Computed example of a mutant assay.
Amino acid sequence: PNDLEIQRQREAQKRALARKHAEEQMQQRTPEPVEGREHVHVQTELYLEEISDRIIEVDMECQTDAFLDRPPTPFFIPAKTGKDVATQIEEGELFDFDIEVKPIVEVLIGKTVEQALLEVMEEEELAQLWARQRAYAELRNAELAEVQRLEEQDRRYREEKERRHRQHMQMLQKQKETTEKIAARAFAQHYLADLIPSVFNNLRDSGYFYDPIERDIETEFLPWLMREVEETLERKVLGRMMVD
């Protein structure tokens, strides 16, 4: 047997074993039928299917007709139209090539030489133009370099001038500040020279600066003395009035 037949036999054995195992399970789960009855295998699916160990197989064959080769396509030959006409030309009737070609060759040579001269002149003119262009470019580059050098020099001069101007302005500002400080100091000294004595005099006149002994005499002794004198005078006046 071939491999296909062996595979079919194995599949049939597997299906038989599966069916046997299912029957054993059903026999174990299903109780024994009562007397006079027996169990029957019934399909409960929607579509019934015939169960068999071997699937029915049928071999069919089909044969097509032999392919016929296509014949080669004939060449297309258009239909002939018009009328054939012929003429006869004898030797020397048309022209003599050596004689007739001479002016044509002269014209061709003249045109070729003229074109060559024009091309040479054009090349020389282009060479002169390129030389002038190179000279102009060199001169222009030199002028640009000189302009850049002059601009850089002018920039350095301007920066140096601005720096010197800033230094001069800073020096003038410092001199002005120094002069103002000196003037302010002199004015303050002159103003304070008269201010301090006048302030002390005003404070002294206002009583902020005093002699303790003099102040004690003025506030304690003199009032007591005046009271004693007044009392003595009053007693004397009273004694005189009583004597009178």
Rank of each mutant, 00 (worst) to 15 (best):
Y210N: 12
D194V: 00
E146P: 01
N202W: 11
G92V: 08
P212H: 09
E159L: 14
Q175V: 07
E162M: 02
A184R: 04
E91H: 12
K102I: 02
R132K: 15
V101Q: 06
E146Y: 06
A127D: 00
E93N: 14
M121D: 08
E162T: 06
K174G: 03
E91P: 06
M171G: 07
A183I: 04
D211R: 05
R185N: 10
L117S: 11
F209I: 15
E125Q: 14
L118E: 07
I99Q: 05
Y191A: 14
Q148P: 00
S198K: 14
E177S: 05
W130N: 09
G207R: 04
E125M: 12
L144P: 00
H168R: 04
D205I: 12
F200C: 00
Q167S: 12
F97D: 02
Q115G: 09
V105H: 07
E91W: 14
Y157F: 08
Y136I: 13
E106S: 05
L139W: 11
Q148Y: 07
P197N: 05
V147F: 06
R163L: 08
E100P: 00
N202Q: 15
Q189M: 10
S198E: 09
R163A: 04
D205V: 15
K102P: 03
D205Q: 15
E91Y: 15
R155C: 01
Y210R: 14
I182A: 13
A193M: 03
E159M: 13
E114N: 10
G110V: 01
D154A: 08
E152V: 01
L108G: 05
N202D: 13
F187P: 02
Q189S: 03
Y157M: 06
T179F: 00
I99N: 00
Q133S: 10
F200Q: 01
L150I: 13
H190E: 15
Q115C: 02
L203D: 05
W130V: 05
A131T: 06
E152W: 00
P103A: 06
A193V: 12
E160Q: 11
E160M: 07
L195K: 10
I213C: 01
E162Y: 04
E100F: 12
